[in-house]
Design a protein around this nucleic acid. Structure first.
Lengths: 348, 348
DNA sequence: ATGAAAGCGCTAACAG
DNA sequence: CTGTTAGCGCTTTCAT
């Protein structure tokens, strides 16, 4: 009785191909490789290619990588894959990377810096050729280490103040300006912010963008109404909205740090018997999937997630090819306003 | 001027550690490896460990894999990462795999069988030790090939009729029974199905489960009201609901193939001036993230996504360890009913 | 234009 | 218990 015979149909190796084509493995290698094919006689090359074809030869990237010190693998580090913001970004990254012959491996840090360290280390050990990360905080010690190691890295949906790291982002200040402009156009004067953490570039940019936009419209951003939270989550949106409601200050609209925080505002407003948008208008940020399905449908700022991911991959590929930084260091994409049911004129 | 000096701080290799500890690389290897540590003198081992520590030695899994023919990498193949159903499953898989020292690499087939082939091949070439896939159609030629190659594989959220493939799933027949039971309890008699593709086990099980449940309640599933679509998407839900509305048959409730299809039903119902649930009740399936935020909040069947992913990883790990199939071939988890705003008593 | 040979970093017999 | 040797599958000098 045949024991696991199937498994025996061992994968053809370069040697096998060489033998079948009657050449030396070195020659077979040259023939199989686009780059070096010209070094070998056209007929011989064809013979090798044919042999490879019939044997169903699949090169072993592991072995190749051991020699070339390239894995054609990119590490993609994401803070939380459950946040609907990231899947489209990931897809943009993967599509572009795949075109270029790279595979991406995704890691989830769950917003845990310690875990982030480990993820980077593991991937480094696995010989990734570069990183794309959406985990950057404004203090970016871990990332600096990577860069010091000479490993290409680009940020997606994040940036660092000093511009020391390449990044693909959307223009958050412009986005917030859109949000505030929309609200002001509707007649709102007292606008609150339930913003995200200012330890993240997105949170900080939106926070500063908010204050700037208010100023531009001749409005003052009341300190008690201009809040930032610890995380971009629903509970944090709830907490901030509760604080807003308890502040004793009047407001007729809230700009939320992102769509999740907007949802948290929905909850608290409802708890206080305020209907949105008749009582208070709410504007979110990101236009995450299904935000058109909420109750009410969320007015929000759309950022081109897929394109942002794509751009990040472009930036990385450029760095991988040239080795040296020739292209732009930062790609900034434009957000747009999506008006839906959660914003309207202020009451009376 | 130093040229890329940083990069020169080359990663310490096993040889370096051995040299530093004054032993042969072979010994260093044994000392560093949990499994073989006992073969070496405790003191010597300690010396090696210390040397590794101070040199910041990181083993190169690529090189190891070349020798051991194990990559400690698992391929996770998903039909569409944009479907909110999958992120929690992925997380369940990754968490379990990571515990066991495996890394997972995720591929997106975008529901394209051709792309699926390529993804499997690529991962195979990258020497993955096994697969977890959620892409299985009822005809599973690609998968059979993998199994024939002797590569461990388990299905997640899918099963095949003949039980030839291991899988971790939720009990779809039971879930649909819950949905129908709920509706019948509310007083509905004419219940329609806007189901998913029966080329997928989930679609088929739910379809058959629906008919069985109706029968059990002494109701007949009208053929014109028992529809299945081509995909589990919003547009397909719309299309089916349109067809239901055009059938001329009366119905007071719809069981949708999944939550996305339920959303499609929402759209068509609204278009026809029917309010949910007063005019028609709708029950979804999956309890995907944010389904409690829809308008109305969706009554649906919750399946424990994270746990399903975890169970799939367990199944795979068992197979990886033992080599031979000793454990169960199928893990079936129980769904539960989540009653929200989209279901109520039938009109008049 | 092709063959020979060395080696990427590691593990696994095999000696001793 | 430890050193020696060979080799995983591939690429890449160096000869020829």
């Amino acid at each position: 009785m045949a024991v696991r015979n199937v498994n025996e149909r061992a994968r053809a190796t370069l040697r096998d191909v060489a033998r079948a084509a009657g050449v030396h493995p070195g020659t077979a290698s040259r023939a199989l490789n686009e780059q070096t094919r010209s070094l070998v006689n056209a007929e011989t090359a064809q013979r090798v290619l044919d042999a490879a074809e019939t044997l169903g030869y699949q090169p072993n990237p592991i072995a190749r990588g051991l020699k070339t010190r390239r894995s054609y693998t990119i590490g993609v580090v994401i803070p939380d894959i459950l946040n609907p913001l990231f899947p489209p970004i990931i897809r943009g990254i993967e599509d572009r990377l795949e075109q270029a012959g790279y595979t991406s491996v995704i890691a989830n840090t769950e917003n845990d810096p310690e875990r982030e360290r480990i993820d980077f280390r593991t991937m480094l050990a696995r010989q990734v050729d570069g990183f794309i990360t959406a985990t950057a905080r404004l203090d970016h010690a871990v990332l600096d280490e990577i860069v010091d190691l000479g490993v290409p890295l680009v940020l997606v949906n994040r940036r660092v103040e000093d511009g020391s790291l390449r990044s693909a982002i959307a223009d958050d200040r412009a986005g917030i300006k859109l949000a505030v402009g929309h609200l002001v156009g509707l007649g709102h004067r007292q606008i609150a912010l339930a913003g995200g953490p200012i330890s993240l570039s997105t949170g900080l940019q939106r926070y500063e963008g908010f204050k700037a936009a208010m100023r531009k419209h001749g409005l003052k951003a009341d300190r008690k109404l201009t809040l930032v939270g610890e995380s971009f989550t629903i509970p944090e949106g709830q907490r901030l909205c509760r604080q807003l409601l308890a502040s004793g200050k009047e407001f007729t609209a809230i700009v939320a740090g992102n769509d999740l925080m907007a949802l948290g505002c929905y909850d608290l407003l409802a708890e206080h018997g305020l209907v949105c948008p008749d009582g208070v208008s709410v504007v979110g940020y990101n236009d995450m999937p299904f935000s058109d399905r909420f109750n009410p449908p969320l007015t929000t700022i759309r950022i081109p997630h897929y394109e942002v991911g794509h751009a990040a991959a472009d930036l990385l590929l450029a760095q991988l090819d040239e080795g040296s930084p020739d292209g732009p260091n930062e790609v900034v994409l434009e957000p747009s306003l999506v008006v839906r049911g959660s914003s309207g004129p202020p009451p009376n």
